[in-house]
Design a protein around this nucleic acid. Structure first.
Length: 462
RNA sequence: GCGCCGGUGCCCGAGCGGCCCAAGGGAACGGCCUGCAAAGCCGUACAGUCGCGGGUUCAAAUCCCGCCCGGCGCUCCA
């Protein structure tokens, strides 16, 4: 049984499925107006791993993530660049997609755009006005927060606590009945894109889109709603409030991933180049996988440290995975149809079922790799099973294997390199070690690593 | 200030009342293997203790209290 921490109840509890064997997951997606940064990567990776693991467990996952293509930041950027909001959104959505593809993050099954759901949002707001939970005035439509039962439950704060926070802020908008009330619909302002509504032209507030889209696509009482823990308040709290006010059955379980620290500090301006995903990807060809491994080695609910050192350490770890596969390939171990090692599978499943314990899952994978290598060295029949199991576990977490240059001696895939490797083999055969080492140095200079195995040399890009 | 989450070896990080003199990865060191390497395997040192100080318990890294440090949040509008 899969158990997951639920922000609402504050404990780890079984993830109930509305429909047996299926999981409906709504994870808040990006507002597209700028380069995605590493925080976006952690968020997207968290739910990608969740989804992959659920699927590996045999569950049919319906993964939905919105794309916010209209909001203040997009408007600001459009004005600054003297272009349209939709042009800004289209451009940055593409950038986002490219980066996520590079990180090997599976595309959610549905990716609704806010601007495609305005009609549904208007209807939803109308329902709230009709039942007295919302009111319209000159500046827009607002939700009457005090009418919502258990409004602050998700953040575990009382209405008074929250009100104190709101009151402490300057410039309270006095068109609202209560400082806590928030906008469902914002009245049109000059120069902003607008949509028609019964309360005049305007645009939707931030939270309403996720309610309309999650309920619209996944239906009432969907299983799991996720996002970064910076969204617990106000975003998720307000989404939930809207659904409750409308009498709808909302998410049954809430998951939130923790933030990232870069070099011991929160990710921000002073760290400059290390903040965007693209920059990280440009720094090393293997950084996409290394980032995934690094992320997996920290539990998703814990603040995580990321710095160049951590990335380098992860890249080294990845080599163990790849090297094992190369070794198995060199030994001609039959992986197709190999059984799985029950001990490893059981340990892995237990760890992952318990609130997505990826650090322990990774530990199990590495232990399996060590056992596989030992079996390979010993010529043990269990080798195939262990290698196949390790690859399987890696795959369950979205870690791909890239042995690179697979194959031995003459058929490594690159004629020039293969020729050099063959020449070295001949030199060694005739005991001309000086020549053999010379060739190896030349290969090293080209970034090629040669490993000698009982079955001949195997090379890869290092 | 208020709320929530953290502080574990050289680094990253599991563990969350006894199985912990604390997993896994990286880095280090020794051995095996190798012509020498690389990779791999085996082993060792690093945590005499898990931010600090009290307390509860037969038993605490794990629970409670206080303090210090770090992080996230504290609406809408600008």
């Amino acid at each position: 049984m899969i158990r997951l921490y639920d922000t609402l109840t504050g404990d780890v509890r079984p993830l109930a499925q509305r429909d047996e064997g299926k999981v409906s997951l709504y994870a808040c997606g990006p507002t597209v107006y700028d380069h995605p940064h590493l925080g976006h990567a952690r968020q997207a990776m968290t739910y990608d791993v969740m989804r992959r693991y659920f699927e590996w467990r045999g569950l049919a996952v319906h993964h939905v993530a919105n794309v916010t293509d209209i909001d203040d930041k997009i408007i600001a950027r459009a004005q600054a660049e003297n272009t349209t909001e939709s042009a800004v959104a289209t451009e940055w959505k593409q950038v986002y997609d490219d980066v996520m593809d590079a990180l090997d993050i599976l595309r959610p099954h549905d990716r609704p755009h806010a601007t495609e759901y305005v009609e549904e949002m208007v209807e939803f707001i109308q329902t709230l006005i009709d039942n007295g939970s919302a009111y319209a005035n000159d500046s827009g439509v607002y939700l009457r927060v005090h009418t919502v039962d258990g409004y602050g439950d998700l953040v575990h704060r009382s209405l008074d606590d929250l009100r104190e926070g709101a009151g402490a802020r300057v410039e309270v908008d006095d068109t609202k009945e209560d400082p806590l009330d928030f906008a469902l619909w914002k009245a049109a302002k000059p120069g902003e894109p607008t949509w028609p509504s019964p309360w005049g032209d305007g645009r939707p507030g931030w939270h309403i889109e996720c309610v309309a889209m999650s309920l619209g696509i996944l239906g009432d009482g969907f299983d799991l709603h996720g996002g970064g823990n910076d969204l617990v308040f106000p975003h998720h709290t307000n989404e939930r409030a809207e659904a409750i006010a409308a009498g709808r059955d909302f998410a049954q379980h809430w998951a939130h991933n923790a933030m990232l620290n870069i070099s011991g500090e929160k990710m921000s301006k002073s760290l400059g180049n290390f903040t965007t995903i693209q920059t990280l990807l440009d720094e090393h060809p293997d950084n996409a996988r290394a980032l995934r491994l690094a992320l997996l080695q920290t539990h998703y609910r814990k603040v995580m440290e990321l710095n160049p050192d951590v990335m380098a350490q992860s890249r080294e770890g990845l080599k163990r995975l790849d090297a094992m596969v190369r070794k198995a390939s060199g030994a001609d171990v039959p992986l197709d149809g190999a059984e799985r090692d029950a001990t490893a599978i059981a340990a892995f499943t237990a760890a992952m079922d318990d609130d997505l314990g990826t650090p322990e899952g990774v530990a199990t994978m590495f232990e399996t790799i060590r056992r596989a290598n030992a079996a390979l060295d010993a010529g043990d029949d269990a080798a195939a099973m262990l290698v196949a199991t390790a690859i399987d576990l890696a795959g369950a977490m979205g870690l791909s294997v890239e042995p690179d240059g697979l194959g031995s001696g003459g058929d490594g895939g690159d004629p020039e390199i293969d020729a050099l490797v063959s020449a070295r083999t001949e030199a060694r055969a005739s005991k001309d070690f000086a020549e053999a080492d010379r060739i190896r140095d030349e290969l090293t200079a080209r970034g090629i690593v040669v490993e000698d195995t009982p079955n001949g040399p195997v090379w890869h890009r290092g």
